[in-house]
Amino acid sequence: MARLVSLIGVPHDPTLPIAARLRGEGKAPPGALPALDCFNELRGALAEARPDMIVMAGSDHLNQWFFDNMAPFMVGKPSRLKGPFPSEAKAWGLEGCDLPVHGALARHILKQGFEEGVDFAFSDEFVADHSFTIPLNFLRPEHDLPVVPLFVNLLAPPVPPGRRYAAVGSAVRSCIESFGEDARVALIVTGHMSNGVGGPGMISNMTEPESAWDRAMWARIEANDVDDIVRHSTWDQLYAAGNGTPGFLAYVLAFGAARGVPAGYRKLVATTAQPACAFLAWDETVLNGGAA
């Protein structure tokens, strides 16, 4: 049976790859450096976990999935995961990715998900938007592992309440652990802390890097009070903290997959360079009942 050997939660802010390029020239905004350092540390943590494949839960910023056909949760099973979209590459100068999809694991998650109570939609033409390509390029720049992309709706309301995201996280873990191959699997999720990208509060982090919402939610994360995290994770509560804040629901999925075990790695980066970023990681020992 397969084993979950790494669980990682990271942001996907498209200004971070720009900052990473500028860092090489000594021109990166100082406020971006702590986030880049976290990505470097977690790249190391992922390498140490020696995964054979990656399951990645990200979103889609109304690039492929639109209001004409919107699923809350979806398994992608194209033969290769390619992205990002041309409009994103143009807007941000993003590098692409083109990775093999682990079709057997994707199909297992889809079918076993039904048994676990999650009716995933599926797509054989799934395209990765920047929420997939940015974390994958930061965390596994070798591009050497097959992936399974999971879409979670983080920005097109209505969306399910937080408890459903937690339940999906737990179900995905069950699906990984019942996969018949003797494989080491990493689960990466990507989302947001408070942000108002596209809204009137878009640059509030420039004057208030850590909002009252960030402080309150981070305190719940530090206390590993998952029930309280879930209770505060409905669309209305998150949207009130900034129109992009429902992106936090991806982290709720990670807490569901962690099943109550606290993250061994927890860093909140709140600077004026970009909206607040959460970096969380659970290693193999912590995930599988060992000491933190």
């Binding site: 109304l62 807007a91 920005l155 097109a156 108002g196 596209g198 992009g244």
Partner: peptide, 25 residues
């Protein structure tokens, strides 16, 4: 949707820039 409006604005501008974002806000 704010993200669609922002994407529209970025496209009108021909790409993202700090000046474009400040004008948008």
């Amino acid at each position: 949707h704010p993200f669609l409006l922002y994407s529209f604005s970025i496209a009108v501008n021909g790409g993202w820039s700090m000046e474009m974002m400040m004008d948008y806000v």
